[in-house]
């Protein structure tokens, strides 16, 4: 119990203490090397060892939109991005700077040469791939899957590639399918919007929103699976790269 509580104390709403500097004071080669070690333990699980894999944002780019200054990078690394999946991490200031130095080195080192063509990817997404049947991008698209309008700021190219080839391998944690059966025998299946010990909320496949107190229900069945098809074999390797390139451009900049 106490560890959980402590975790919240440190993670939830840290008082921000930002160093008042414009340059990273720990950016020598030795700092970057140490930063890499720290990164491996604390960040690589989400961002991948080279910054371009995992469920986190792409760090293998020269320009990090949420970390355009050194101070902004310090803040993101130490305090996370509130209300997103990017967590705060407890570290001493020197360690934060060393990780920050390593993150910057990821961007300048690996500019992905084999990147696909985003314009071609947009075509695949709206036509051959049929993605908009299930996903919303701006004004277009359906609601069977999560909206992709800002996916490029959230996920790495490695993760997006993996999602297209083997969608079941790594699921969106907040997107589960639920089937409930009411005591009078009605069965409703859809996306689970919320759940607690006493109630559950579901959006069915015709976009009807339902809320049930569990005492009204005979059964609740929540599944960890996806309706997203695999595109392995359905799209060529080049098309997959094009789709990934396009998805990376989606940063909430709809219209």
């Amino acid at each position: 119990m106490i560890p959980v509580l402590l975790w919240f104390l440190f993670q939830a709403a840290p008082l921000m203490d930002l160093p008042n500097v414009t340059e990273n004071p720990y950016a020598a080669a030795a700092d970057i090397a140490l930063g890499q070690k720290l990164y491996k333990g604390r960040c690589a699980g989400c961002h991948g060892l080279t910054g371009d894999g995992g469920k986190g944002a792409n760090l293998a780019v020269r320009d990090l939109p949420r970390a355009q200054t050194e101070q902004a990078l310090y803040r993101v690394v130490r305090y996370g991005i509130p209300e997103t999946e990017m967590p705060a991490t407890l570290m001493a200031p020197r360690e934060v700077w060393q990780i920050a130095a390593f993150v910057r080195s990821l961007g300048s080192a690996s500019q992905d040469a084999t990147r696909g063509n985003a314009a071609a990817g947009e075509q695949v997404v709206s036509a051959k791939g049929g993605c908009l049947q299930c996903h919303a991008i701006g004004l277009k698209g359906g609601r069977m899957g999560p909206a992709l309008s800002d996916i490029g700021g959230k996920r790495s190219p490695g993760h997006l590639r993996g999602k297209l080839l083997d969608p079941a391998a790594d699921l969106v944690d907040t997107f589960r399918l639920a089937t409930v059966t009411t005591k009078d025998g009605r069965k409703i299946t859809g996306v689970r919007l919320n759940e607690d010990p006493f109630s559950i909320q579901i959006r069915d496949f015709s976009d009807g929103i339902h809320s049930f107190f569990k005492e009204q229900l005979a059964s609740v069945h929540v599944e960890r699976r996806t309706t997203m098809p695999s595109y392995k074999g359905r799209l060529s390797a080049a098309e997959i790269e094009d789709v990934v390139a396009y998805l990376l451009t989606l940063r909430g900049n709809v219209q």
């Binding site: 909206a147 309008s149 959006r203 976009d207 929103i209």
Partner: peptide, 12 residues
Amino acid sequence: LDTKTGAIRWDT
């Protein structure tokens, strides 16, 4: 935003 999902549909 989409009333059903909260997804951004346009941003002006």
